[in-house]
Amino acid sequence: VSEWTEYKTADGKTYYYNNRTWESTWEKPQ
Rank of each mutant, 00 (worst) to 15 (best):
E3M: 07
R20P: 12
E27G: 06
D11H: 07
V1M: 15
T14M: 01
Q30D: 13
E3T: 06
E23P: 02
Y16W: 15
S24E: 11
K13W: 06
T14Q: 07
W26H: 07
T5A: 12
S2H: 09
P29R: 00
V1K: 07
S24K: 13
N19H: 12
N18S: 04
T14D: 01
E6H: 03
S24Y: 13
E27A: 09
K13H: 11
T25W: 07
Y7H: 06
E6Y: 05
Y15D: 07
E27N: 09
W22E: 15
Y17A: 07
E23S: 05
T25M: 14
N19F: 06
E6Q: 12
T21R: 02
E23I: 03
W22R: 12
W26L: 10
W22V: 02
S24Q: 11
Y17I: 15
P29Y: 06
S24R: 10
K28H: 11
T5Y: 10
T14A: 02
T14N: 03
T5P: 00
R20Y: 15
K28S: 11
K13D: 10
K28R: 10
V1P: 15
A10H: 13
E3S: 01
K13T: 09
Y17Q: 11
S2D: 14
G12S: 00
E6T: 08
Y15N: 02
K28V: 12
E6A: 11
S2Q: 13
E23N: 07
K8T: 14
P29M: 08
K28A: 13
W26T: 14
K13F: 10
R20H: 11
P29G: 04
E23Y: 05
T21I: 05
K28M: 10
E6M: 05
W26F: 07
S2P: 11
S2T: 13
K8S: 10
Y7K: 14
Y7A: 10
Q30V: 14
N19P: 05
T5W: 09
T5D: 09
K8F: 11
T25I: 05
Y7T: 09
W4M: 05
E6N: 00
E6G: 02
E23R: 01
Q30Y: 05
G12D: 08
R20A: 14
W4H: 01
Y16Q: 00
K8A: 10
Q30A: 12
V1Y: 15
R20Q: 15
V1F: 15
Y15P: 01
E3Y: 06
E27T: 05
D11V: 02
Q30T: 14
N18R: 00
K28E: 08
Y17T: 11
S24H: 12
E6I: 06
Y7L: 09
K8L: 08
W26D: 10
G12I: 00
T14W: 04
D11P: 00
P29V: 05
T14R: 01
D11I: 01
W22M: 15
T5L: 12
Q30W: 12
D11Y: 06
E3A: 08
S2M: 11
W22N: 15
E3D: 14
Y15W: 13
P29K: 02
K13C: 10
E3L: 08
A10D: 13
Y7N: 10
N19G: 09
P29S: 05
Y7S: 02
D11M: 02
T9N: 11
V1H: 14
T21W: 10
Q30N: 11
A10W: 05
T14P: 00
T21Y: 07
Y16A: 02
T25K: 12
R20W: 15
T5F: 07
N18I: 01
S24M: 15
T21V: 05
S2V: 08
E23M: 01
K8P: 03
K13S: 07
Y16V: 00
T5V: 12
G12E: 01
K8E: 04
Y16I: 03
W22G: 15
E3R: 00
A10R: 10
W4P: 02
T21P: 01
T14C: 12
K13L: 12
K28P: 15
T5K: 10
W26V: 02
Y7P: 00
G12P: 01
V1A: 13
W22F: 14
Y15E: 08
T9G: 06
N19R: 04
W4V: 03
Y17F: 14
T14L: 07
P29D: 10
E27Q: 06
N18A: 00
G12K: 03
G12Q: 02
D11F: 07
S2F: 12
W22D: 15
G12Y: 04
T5R: 11
W22A: 15
Q30F: 03
N19S: 07
Y17S: 05
Y7M: 15
W26N: 14
K13A: 09
E27F: 09
R20E: 13
T21K: 03
P29Q: 09
Y15S: 05
T9L: 08
Y16H: 02
W4A: 03
A10V: 10
T5I: 08
E6R: 01
W26S: 09
S24N: 06
R20D: 15
E23H: 04
T25Q: 12
D11R: 01
A10P: 10
W26G: 08
G12T: 01
N18L: 03
S2I: 10
S2Y: 14
Q30H: 12
T21Q: 03
T21D: 07
A10I: 08
P29L: 09
W4S: 03
G12F: 00
T25P: 09
K13Q: 07
R20K: 13
N19D: 09
P29H: 05
N19T: 12
D11E: 14
T25R: 11
E6P: 03
S24A: 13
A10Y: 02
T21A: 04
D11A: 06
E23L: 04
T25Y: 13
N18E: 06
N19Y: 05
G12H: 03
Y15F: 14
W26R: 00
A10Q: 13
